[in-house]
Design a protein around this nucleic acid. Structure first.
Lengths: 219, 219
DNA sequence: GTCTATATCTCGATAGAC
DNA sequence: GTCTATCGAGATATAGAC
């Protein structure tokens, strides 16, 4: 019932209180959702008092928005070095998939928060997210353009770029979101989730490249 | 703000109060999540008084568990007529995908609840779900066996059955869970989600069948 | 079985000492 | 900046009339 987390761990970093709060809030919001999260639990996780949360971020709502915006922007930026135009498609697809899975694996909190916000439908972070993702030049848009170009050049067969991109992203994130169920159904994922994750990158890349291969070629 | 639903009485369905409560609870839990849902809102949706909820289901927790168990069992059962052994693989895969998407489209509430429970990690419904899904004879297990058999018989190439099944399921459910974001990024999904859903069934079936095609054959 | 009224509790937010 | 103490809103749950 009672939470006893205490971050005795962070002895080294002279992390500012504000940073500690944001990190703690990210974890708790991801675990419990926006409503389920308790200010007390965030305070415990950050190793501070509840009143201090309100000193830094006026209200829970503000804290949540700060956490979300920060997280999402970092994710979008992480693709800057990954998607460079003019490369062969198979390498681009491989890099997109590997980076996506690497990122969500290291930031599972973020993945869960994004999904839980989408589950609600309303929500301001949803707005923010939608605008950022649908903007020209965003990672998904660039990947979509890469698919289009590859069809044009005959590197891959003629498929719906939007549907294809959605399938790739689904394959890369859903197994993290559904981790408990995936582990329950899969002894391999249960025993060593990191190994399962590595295998998953290769599986998705392989399945997609085969699935998109022009039917004339039998490489 | 206020909801006014009121079933002004016994028109056609002599639906029992208990049924009405379960239906209302399913909707509200799906919209607001387990924590965000308010007993008052469920009562309004069911057209009854708040106290009556407690008369039928002692507490919110109990109501939630009843809703969840009922929903999940119906889903599992819906596959009884879909997966029959001894059929050619491509038909089995097509039926699995089409049925999955049809079902989650008609029961989006269920899809969202399942995901939101998985996001929490703990939770008794998670337990229930995990046991049901990993049980031999469950739909996912049967589909996995079908994949194994198809590899054995040479109908498809040698892939990891677990990873493949997970990819199929991800592709079939994630776009519903992330509906707001999908719509924001996709004009087609925005304009006519039903049409987008139909197209998605074909896309996934097509992509998977190509992706699993033995490399010797070029059908 | 269904309602009104109310008890109890949890949690976000604030006041104020240090 | 950080703490203790407390207020007040809003939610679950119960008591009891009908």
């Amino acid at each position: 019932m009672t939470t006893e987390i205490k971050t005795t761990e962070t002895t080294k970093t002279t992390e500012s209180t504000e940073e500690r709060i944001l990190d703690a809030a990210r974890k708790v919001f991801a675990r419990k959702g926006r409503d389920g999260a308790r200010m007390q639990e965030i305070a415990d996780e950050a190793g501070i008092n509840r009143a201090l949360l309100h000193y830094y971020f006026r209200a829970k709502q503000g804290l949540f928005e700060a956490v979300f915006a920060r997280m999402f922007e970092q994710f979008v930026r992480s693709y800057d070095t990954v998607l460079v135009p003019g490369q062969p498609f198979h390498g681009t697809l491989r890099r997109f998939i590997h980076h996506y899975i690497d990122y969500v694996s290291e930031h599972q909190d973020m993945a869960r928060l994004i999904v839980s916000e989408n589950l609600r439908g309303d929500s301001m972070p949803g707005e923010l997210m939608s605008r950022a993702a649908s903007k020209e030049g965003s990672p998904p848009r660039r990947m979509e353009n890469a698919i289009r170009a590859a069809i044009e050049s005959g590197e891959i067969r003629d498929v719906d770029p939007n549907q294809t991109l959605l399938t790739v992203i689904s394959a890369c994130i859903h197994f993290i979101v559904m981790k408990p169920l995936v582990q329950a159904m899969n002894p391999e994922a249960q025993a060593d989730f990191a190994a399962f994750t590595e295998a998953r990158k290769e599986h998705i890349t392989d399945l997609l490249l085969h699935g998109l291969q022009p039917s004339e070629e039998v490489s």
